[in-house]
Design a protein around this nucleic acid. Structure first.
Length: 505
RNA sequence: GAGGGCGUAGCUCAGUCGGUAGAGCAAAGGACUUUUAAUCCUUUGGUCCUGGGUUCGAGUCCCAGCGCCCUCACCA
């Protein structure tokens, strides 16, 4: 009988196939925790605990040994999706799933009565049902709700995916995330973990006295990062607008205004290529702390990451692919120059040998600033191999134009990047707050931009804001999606973004 | 944007040298009161991504296109 026929049969039996309010149900995880309340009541009325349940448990034999008696378990009400259906004639087993877990339902014809039992004939994989029953264990020891009454909740009209493999086509999983969440193991957990991580980050920042704000996502000038923006248009104002590519410039304006610890955790949009580590829209945290510097932000980053790990559990030793990562604080801190020297055997200050190495690595050097060449070598020889977590500190100043230099060494910028498994997870600076220097650096940056990046413009208002005095500050950016990838063990950003950008069907 | 791989039943996948389109799950009918990816019997189910070409004959070989995945580039 097809699903639509069953729908009709439900209606004919006076049952609404789309269900309704269903009060007082317990979450399946909570029901599972009540397993210890199940007792075996023997003839004289005394109640004894069930034996330890193992893979070879034979409760039927154990019950026979105890003599005449019966299982007494708590009455529970659950609701969820029918994941597996095992029809044994006058007996039907259902594996029911809600968003907290799975539990088996036992539906015996003699136990629930003819009318309820007829309802099971109208069940399909994927339907939503409600069950009243008593918690107990089957002969094999499986924790089970022995149904006393069935409630039909909602009919699924589409065929269910393969009950073992689920949906494996990555495009379908992303396009039909609803089915992915409902039928593929572990997907729900990953996204609930994502929520837990984001909540934990807010808690860490709030506890440190940071103030969460919401900046504009529509910008008249898209600044704060070197990326191409999405362009849009406001009709009645008849003006071109850009979707933000970073949170930075508005948060700094707020620092000028006196919001001394400020952060935004929100979506930014970059009109660049897609890859397993890049989605056109992604979630960034940016935090700014007045009277701090990049070292303050390093401590904060470490707390944000370790708090998030504690929030989702599983300990500081974690796996990502086949790599073992140790998040036990403190995280390693090494200078850019040290790492360069260790990986290449060459002193980064040795101009000649750096140039020779660039040639060996087939890195074109013509017309490039030595620091740019150095950084290309660094990216190739160092970054990919950093398992981390590690803070790479003290970058060459010329590749960080918007960063304060070290007071005692103007060639070095007060910046760190945190790497885990070769991925850049965080980036922080001691922020530049000199408006005149900022303006000059903006101009040089714009002059160096390619023709197709011409939508980059000078943000005059931002420079004016700095003229009203922004306190010296540390600033931090964390790529939330990548952090979630690392902490949940997902290799693709599209497995931690609920609805990644896709071409239309 | 460049290179490589993939596209077959509702789902997961086989498909040999170019010779009648296959399996498991799902679906439909039946048996079974402690199963658990239940099992057993029966049945149904195809635009082989699209369009050309080679050939007596193409899921298979060739060309083009579309889509997805991976690597690289831009970027975080």
């Amino acid at each position: 009988m097809a699903r639509l026929d069953k729908l009709r049969r439900l209606r004919e039996a006076g049952i609404d196939p789309w269900g309704g309010r269903f009060d007082d149900r317990s979450m399946i995880s909570a029901v599972r925790e009540r397993a210890t309340e199940i007792k075996f009541r023997i003839a004289d009325g005394t109640e004894i605990d069930l034996p330890e349940i193992g893979p070879d448990t034979d409760l039927r034999a154990w019950r026979t040994e105890q003599g005449p008696g019966e299982d007494i378990g708590p009455r529970v009400r659950v609701a969820g999706r029918v994941m597996l259906l095992r029809d044994k004639g006058k007996l039907v087993f259902v594996t029911l799933r809600d968003w907290t877990g799975d539990i088996q339902i036992f539906i015996g014809k003699n136990q629930v009565g003819e009318e309820n039992f007829e309802l099971t004939k109208l069940f399909d994989l994927g339907d939503l049902i409600g069950v009243d029953g008593r918690l107990g264990r089957t002969n094999t020891g499986e924790l089970t709700v022995f149904a006393e009454r069935l409630h039909f909740m909602t009919k699924m009209l589409e065929p269910a995916p393969d009950k073992h493999a689920g949906i494996t086509d990555p495009e379908l999983r992303q396009r039909m995330r609803y089915a992915d969440l409902a039928f593929n193991d572990g997907v729900m957990k990953t996204f609930l973990d994502r929520t837990t991580i984001v909540r934990s980050i807010r808690q860490t920042l709030d506890r440190d006295g940071f103030c969460e704000v919401e900046g504009p996502t529509l910008h008249t000038v898209a600044g704060g990062a070197a990326a191409r923006p999405f362009v849009t248009h406001h009709n009645t104002l008849d003006m071109q607008l850009y979707l933000r590519i970073a949170l930075e410039l508005h948060l700094k304006r707020l620092m000028v205004g006196g919001i001394e610890r400020v952060y935004e955790l929100g979506r930014v949009y970059r009109n660049e290529g897609v890859s397993p580590r890049h989605n056109p829209e992604f979630t960034m945290l940016e935090a700014y702390q007045a009277y701090g510097d990049y070292r303050s932000m390093m401590d904060l980053t470490e707390r944000i990451v370790t708090d998030a790990i504690e929030a989702i559990g599983g300990g500081f030793q974690r796996r990502f692919g086949d790599v073992e990562i140790d998040f036990t604080p403190p995280f390693a801190r090494q200078t850019y120059a040290e790492l360069f020297q260790a990986a290449t055997g060459i002193d980064p200050a040795d101009e000649q040998r750096v140039t020779r190495l660039a040639a060996e690595l087939a890195i074109p050097t013509a017309g490039k600033h030595p620091d740019v060449i150095r950084n290309e070598i660094f990216e190739e020889k160092v970054e990919d191999s950093l398992v981390g977590p590690i803070f790479v500190i003290d970058y060459p100043a010329s590749i960080c134009p918007l960063t304060k230099r070290k007071a005692d060494n103007p060639a070095i910028a007060e910046r760190f990047e945190m790497f885990i498994c070769g991925m850049e997870l965080a980036n922080a600076y001691t922020e530049l707050n000199d408006p005149e220097l900022q303006e000059t650096l903006f101009k040089t940056q714009l002059a160096g931009m390619a023709e197709d990046d011409s939508m980059a413009k000078m943000d005059h208002d931002f420079v004016r804001a700095l003229r009203y005095a922004m306190p010296p500050a540390g600033g931090l950016g964390i790529g939330i999606d990548r952090l979630v990838m690392i902490l949940t063990g997902q290799r693709s950003i599209r497995d931690v973004v609920l609805f990644p950008t896709l071409r239309p069907e």
